[in-house]
Simulated scan of single mutants.
Amino acid sequence: MKRLAAFSLASGSLALTALTATATTAVADSSQCTTYVAGSYATCAGHAWFQSNGEHLYIEDRVADGHSVAVHYTVNGVTKTAYNRNSASGAVVDLNLDLPEGAVITYSVCLSNSSTDLAGSCSGGIRDYA
């Protein structure tokens, strides 16, 4: 009976380890903020985050500074730009990207003025997986 209990305990431990390894592999979420720009611009005035479950890229304008938030993202070598022009009191923009499992996405977030990025406002790029 002791041998059976030890085997059951060891098997349960292996199953838990396998489950944990699988769960962490599937979770790949990231977040980026605009950087500080001299003057009245705040750090993290624009924010973007990628949610791997469902492949959503969200864009948020956090500061009512009169600027839009731009996200430049690349998937499979194709770069696109999306904007949140809703102002700080507006809704978060949700891009449903519909990417294949394991696809690589890189993105950066910037403050924008009429589709032109404000110098010094862009985050460094970040890489994530669908």
Rank of each mutant, 00 (worst) to 15 (best):
K2D: 01
R3T: 07
A6T: 06
F7R: 10
F7N: 00
S8I: 05
S8H: 01
L9W: 04
L9N: 08
S11V: 10
L14M: 15
L16P: 11
T17S: 15
A18W: 06
A18N: 00
L19Y: 10
V27L: 14
V27P: 00
V27E: 06
D29A: 03
D29G: 02
D29W: 07
S31G: 10
S31F: 12
S31P: 00
V37R: 06
G39Q: 08
S40Y: 11
Y41N: 07
A42L: 11
A45Y: 09
A45P: 01
G46M: 01
H47W: 13
W49V: 01
Q51D: 09
N53M: 09
G54Y: 05
G54L: 03
H56D: 05
H56S: 09
L57D: 08
Y58R: 11
E60S: 15
A64R: 15
A64M: 12
A64T: 04
G66D: 07
G66C: 08
H67L: 06
H67M: 05
V69L: 05
A70W: 05
H72S: 05
H72W: 01
H72A: 10
T74Y: 14
T74A: 08
T74I: 01
N76P: 04
N76H: 15
G77T: 02
G77E: 10
G77R: 11
G77K: 06
K80C: 02
K80M: 02
T81H: 10
T81Q: 10
A82F: 05
A82Y: 05
Y83P: 03
N84F: 13
N84A: 03
N86G: 10
S87W: 11
G90W: 09
G90L: 03
A91M: 02
A91P: 02
A91F: 06
V93K: 05
V93W: 01
D94G: 01
L95M: 07
L95D: 00
L97H: 11
D98A: 13
L99G: 12
E101P: 14
G102Y: 05
V109D: 05
S115N: 04
T116E: 02
S121A: 09
S123W: 09
G125F: 09
D128V: 13
Y129D: 04
A130I: 03
